[in-house]
Design a protein around this nucleic acid. Sequence first.
DNA 1: GCAATGACTGACAAAATTGTTAGTAACAAA
DNA 2: TTTGTTACTAACAATTTTGTCAGTCATTGC
Lengths: 136, 136
Amino acid sequence: MRKKESTDYANEQSLFQLCERNSAISMISGRWKGQIVYYIFQGNDRFHLLQQKLPNISETVLARQLKELESHAILVKREIPNTIPAGIKYILTNKGIDLVPILDSLCKWGKLYADGKKISIPSNEQAFTVPNLETD
Amino acid sequence: MRKKESTDYANEQSLFQLCERNSAISMISGRWKGQIVYYIFQGNDRFHLLQQKLPNISETVLARQLKELESHAILVKREIPNTIPAGIKYILTNKGIDLVPILDSLCKWGKLYADGKKISIPSNEQAFTVPNLETD
DNA sequence: GCAATGACTGACAAAATTGTTAGTAACAAA
DNA sequence: TTTGTTACTAACAATTTTGTCAGTCATTGC
């Protein structure tokens, strides 16, 4: 359980307040989360299907990651009627679906440089036009 | 120092192998990293300027975060000539600059839902309120 | 000589995340 | 009656991340 008096917690909260970028990053930062969102998006919407896709995850850890994604409204659980034992379906919300193209762009960004795109420094230091998303 | 024999390390590596999305997420997952990249992009390219912008970060932690960003080639350090004591400039590489619009889209995504965009399930278009799972 | 500066590093402690073990429920098939 | 199924939870241990404290270096200003 998070200690609300810790420096770490206070620092996290101040970053969350500063810009939603920081809370957004924290929402996708769990070990398996990006992959889980992607697999659900692909149609692997059951607990056991996710386990098949991620053979190294334990039940406990998968349940925990799903709960956290649910707490951020990235997905919801729905009971499937007439199943014994009662089955649960994991459904991405609009928020979760909106996240998918961002995860894709992260994937492409990583792949580009992993595949050998040269690292360079922009030659001249011109003033960039920065979209100001924050107050300072 | 990372233990290369741990389950945690093995799981991380297998996710990195599965998709660059997972390594990309891990590159931006440090407590202050997204914010640091953004501030450098804005022109706060010196150690003490970053400290001013992030008054709660300690020198040690800032140095560590910068080193990790450097190890992922998101930024490089350059000595500034004729400065006493020798000053260091932090410069985003092309890889770092390519990351900025992705961080921006994460920011917008977070902001949209923080600002009250309704959560819904696409299939039945039924809006609902998010269950608050944080009990204390 | 002594403090101040900028940009750190090493060693350690605190806190958070991740993984492990054991157990739950309700029903079905063998 | 024992095993199997789906989808969990609680308690605890291992590991990792984050934060803290002290100290470094080469130089300038007082």
